[in-house]
Amino acid sequence: MLSVVLFFLNVNIMSTIEREQIQTEIIRIFSEQFEIENPGPDEDLRDVHGFDSIDAIELLGEIESLLKSELTRSEKKAAMEIRTIDQILDYIESLAKTRS
């Protein structure tokens, strides 16, 4: 689950996690929470899988509650541009850096 990823984020060892491990976790989240199975890293989540702005907000809410850290408005706005799994991974990495 995402909590596993965020646990790593919280203890600031993000850099030690392989990006592939995070991707595995994210894909599992997409399967369990959004019923989107095996999205490709560069697939447009909205066009291909119907992942819409409501889903993006839901994902952010979960990230916030599990991080126990409120995202800033600009961080939330930045997330609205996310369209692919790769971009989600980039986003998580950037959050980790600002909180390390």
């Binding site: 907000i57 839901e58 509650s65």
Partner: peptide
Amino acid sequence: GYSSIKAV
């Protein structure tokens, strides 16, 4: 509590 309010 606040963050439990969902977008939907």
